[in-house]
């Protein structure tokens, strides 16, 4: 083979930082912004997305020999939609309040670009093992991205972290951080910081 395909381990590591879906690829922005007003909804969202991503990646990889090029996007979305329905019903059955709070964003996992991108880039070309490693790595990367944003927003917005009080009770709580504008501002600034850090490391190594 002229060009080596990345192995399972490389795919796994790539997903966490070098190709982090939130900060590097800017994919899956809707959940990143919508459910990060608290740590709990963000982590539930990560769990649901990871479940769908891993299942869909493994399934797509298992049927990759049968895919027709012009129908593949349709097959990906239908596979993802089936797993999202499972995740949505599970959430509604066991975590009813959380499923009410996440509302339409659970079904919107179907059109989360991360999952379709991973099916297209990795799972439709490589073996089940590589696809699994890739999905786990990307899920961890997605989780890290959401966790950082949710941490900033929850601590500044309500002075709590995962529901625990971390700031003194006199903290006023920046209401704007919990509201939609806070999501845009936080992600914009964090992207700037991530970019600044990677540039500084680039300069140091040369």
């Amino acid at each position: 083979m002229a060009q080596e395909e990345p192995t399972a381990l490389e795919r796994f590591i790539n997903g966490i930082l070098p190709e982090n879906p939130v900060y590097r690829q800017l994919l899956g922005m809707c959940p990143t912004l919508a459910v990060t007003n608290g740590m709990k909804p963000a982590m539930t969202m990560v769990a649901a997305t990871a479940f769908v991503l891993i299942c869909a990646n493994v399934m797509t990889s298992a049927i990759r020999g049968l895919l027709k090029p012009h129908l593949r996007i349709l097959v990906f979305t239908m596979t993802i939609a089936a797993f999202v329905t499972i995740a949505d019903r599970l959430l509604a059955a066991y975590m009813y309040d959380m499923s009410k709070q996440l509302g339409p964003y659970v079904p919107l996992i179907i059109v989360n670009c991360i999952i379709i991108a991973r099916c297209e880039v990795c799972a439709s070309k490589q073996s089940v093992r590589v696809a699994f490693g890739d999905a786990v790595g990307q899920s961890i990367g997605f989780g890290l991205g959401l966790a950082t944003i949710a941490t900033v927003r929850e601590i500044l917005g309500s002075g709590t972290w995962l529901g625990l009080h971390v700031l003194p009770a006199s903290w006023p709580g920046w209401g704007i951080m919990v509201l939609p504008p806070g999501a845009f501002l936080t992600l914009g600034l964090l992207l700037g910081i991530a970019e600044w850090l990677s540039r500084r490391r680039g300069r140091a190594s040369t």
């Binding site: 504008p181 501002l185 914009g188 700037g192 970019e195």
Partner: peptide, 23 residues
């Protein structure tokens, strides 16, 4: 625009200010 914020960063901050206006 400060270097690291160029592109998506500043676009998101602009979107945040627009979201405040739409509130």
């Amino acid at each position: 625009v400060p270097g690291p914020l160029k592109g998506a960063g500043v676009a998101l901050i602009v979107a945040g200010i627009m979201a405040m206006a739409f509130m």
